[in-house]
Design a protein around this nucleic acid. Structure first.
Lengths: 187, 187
DNA sequence: GTCATCATGTAATCTGTTACATGATTTC
DNA sequence: GAAATCATGTAACAGATTACATGATGAC
């Protein structure tokens, strides 16, 4: 009887986890931390989702788990990627095309329906987003400093470049909005 | 016994629908079309989700529905926003803050784990995204032309400005990536 | 002694998607 | 005669979130 293998449609969260496991074995807790410091900027699943996904990776044969007893902490499950897991990761990364840009932006929805709100409150929201983007730039620059070792940083660096471009676009737009509101007030 | 009113936490899809109903009564089908031509660029629910949300708006007292018999088509339900619906819409638009920027971008995840793929395939994906952004710019420019009437276009225009800034950021980044890969090939 | 952090996970729920189901009308 | 579009909705299910639950250790 043939072994039933999970059809190789991995969810994006599974791939994020698999990608991080490819750098070394980790527990759910480790993964959460690793995600928050890396791919969390563009893929940030909830902790519970990470824990939910791990057993299904094992079931699919993409990872193995091993219970590690700890002295002063609860036991932990440490997950390790398998050769089949690496193959699946590669398939996913190469598979075209990455679903088009996420079309979910509540702030734009609020702007679109801005006639129902007071201009001041809307501007506050735009300014808040602008401030977030300034902060993002600072964070990315800080990471850039740390990553000066260079090696193994080529691809992550490309994502930081994206972040900077993105942040600057929003900042530029926020300034546009500010100007447009001023022009409008003058009339 | 007090009337149980749905607690006023509207989902984003409900607000999108409410916002469009604020411009006039519509059926589910009308809404789908209206969304695709407007807010669909940053909030694009599935048709079934629109149909699912409408009865719950009625239940919450934010809209009323009326069955309209049609001669050569199935009867349709036409929804109309209520005063309470307008108030709820306003509350939502003004309520701070719009949840931070959507942190879900599968393309960046693929780039981040790019070492597991061939450079050519990755570049193809980046170029595909670039092409999408060029197309987005064209679409936005076309809409801009049509919207020359001016009136009632202030807020939608701000969202198109966002779209243009965004598209240009991605295009600039795609060119960065192209350059970085070339540099890397040379070494 | 209190609070943050380490460390693990489960339960309940929600939001939304894809696939299903139906049928008339207009255009080529 | 076929295909696209008008027009309505339902069913099944998946993916993810928030809240729940527990307990030790180290810092202040």
């Amino acid at each position: 009887m043939p072994v039933e293998t999970k059809t190789s449609t991995l969810t994006t969260t599974e791939c994020a986890v698999l990608g991080l496991l490819a750098r070394g074995p980790k527990s759910g807790y480790d993964l959460k931390k690793a995600i928050d410091r890396s791919v969390g900027y563009f893929w940030g699943p909830a902790k519970s989702q990470i824990y939910a996904v791990l057993p299904s990776l094992v079931e699919a044969g993409y990872a193995t788990s091993r219970t590690v007893a700890q002295e002063r902490r609860p036991d932990k499950e440490v997950y390790r990627i398998t050769a089949r897991g690496r193959a699946a990761l590669r398939r996913w990364v190469e598979e075209a095309p990455a679903s088009p840009t996420p079309d979910r932006n509540p702030l734009l929805l609020k702007i679109f329906f801005g006639e129902h709100a007071s201009p001041e409150i809307l501007l506050e929201q735009v300014r808040a987003r602008r401030a977030e983007m300034e902060q993002l730039k600072d964070e990315l620059n800080a990471i850039e400093e740390q990553a000066r070792d260079g090696t193994h940083d080529f691809f992550p660096q490309l994502t930081r470049m994206y972040g900077r471009r993105y942040a600057e676009a929003i900042i530029g737009w926020a300034d546009d909005v500010e100007r447009k509101f001023e022009q409008r007030r003058e009339r």
